[in-house]
Design a protein around this nucleic acid. Sequence first.
DNA 1: TATCTCCGGATTGTTGACAATCTTCACAGG
DNA 2: CCTGTGAAGATTGTCAACAATCCGGAGATA
Lengths: 222, 222
Amino acid sequence: MSSASGFQPVPRESTSSLITRQLREGIMRGALPAGTQLSEVALAAEFGVSRGPLREAMQRLVQEGLVRSELNRGLFVKELDEAEIRDLYLTRTAIETTAARAVAHSEAVIPGTERLRARAAAMAAAAAAGDLEALADADFAFHEELVSLAGSPRLHRVHETLMVETRMCMTALQGTYFDPEDQVAEHSRIVEAIASGDDAALVREIEEHMQEALDRLVRASR
Amino acid sequence: MSSASGFQPVPRESTSSLITRQLREGIMRGALPAGTQLSEVALAAEFGVSRGPLREAMQRLVQEGLVRSELNRGLFVKELDEAEIRDLYLTRTAIETTAARAVAHSEAVIPGTERLRARAAAMAAAAAAGDLEALADADFAFHEELVSLAGSPRLHRVHETLMVETRMCMTALQGTYFDPEDQVAEHSRIVEAIASGDDAALVREIEEHMQEALDRLVRASR
DNA sequence: TATCTCCGGATTGTTGACAATCTTCACAGG
DNA sequence: CCTGTGAAGATTGTCAACAATCCGGAGATA
């Protein structure tokens, strides 16, 4: 059998894994707002499985920190107060600066920056069109791409959770207005800093971007 | 009811949580070496519970990345090749530099550095006594303390997993000899950098320390 | 001999039922 | 009016049995 046939391993996935993904999506999109109790029977019925696999999925989310477990009481979607939001952005900064530096020093800087420029362009387009939802999506795609390019499974796994939490915040504050142009400009500066290979500038740009984003969120939440 | 009574909430904990902790300990200490299959029935019997809670604990470890799941095949303790070890230290650097900077800029720098100095002193004592096991323990306690002092739940949770993986590596390479004095000196330099409040120096010290530790590990594993 | 088929044993995946716990509400007593 | 008691209802925690899947080897066939 040729190994050059280009076949990929069959993407079989456990039920609990599939459920976890859907629940995460629900938490992210606001279908399961912060604080809601997650009823096992109700969710199990909705997913069409028994409580076993569903409970396994729940434990994953608990480990991820997206869900809080109270013994004999139930599971609740975690709520984010201001201190938590600050912690979230502190951690995002840690992960993303490291990722960006890894990209900047990797052999694939050129195609990497190219892809990031494309993401930034998508943001600009959404901003120009005044489509705030598309802008948010493009924003997320940018950061997701950035960390993916670093090629670090650990940074990526941690970042995935952080992005869910970020989106949770933004969903909760939906309707508040941010200046799109600022956001677009900040992302462009990050890309160019990566391209330049200047570590100090790079770190500074990301830290500033995170600080700005955090300020926008905190301001909106009061 | 006074809220200043100093009582803490009763530390009730779910069974799956307790099992998770024990399994993690086992993986860390080498009782469950990398690559071993984790038999559900055997482990459930050992813990004296049924397979339900045990499976929930397993899913937590999968989410943590310490255990790999093959559908209909079983669960295996994750193995770390050289690339994984590099990724591990990359991520540790990201977390610990951020934590150290947070400590350096916090209001509690003074007591913080004091506690870290105590940890470093414990390392020095173990090194002087030639007790390599105690040295490793003190080493871990130092890094654990460093991240705890940052007061960031996210950094702490991520770091916990990373330290388990680190210990896994070191357990696997048990018997190899490292120069204790170097290690002690590196940690002392980190503490003093925190005390000095010089961010650049701080980051440099931690990055160098991680690079050294990584080199020691990689060298020993070949 | 090489290959294919099939079967037995073992392990995981899933389920429904049972036990334990918590919450809520009504109600009696001070 | 407030406090304590108790039972009903609902929810979570746990278990043991059943179903599905995988692995290895014996045996048949060319």
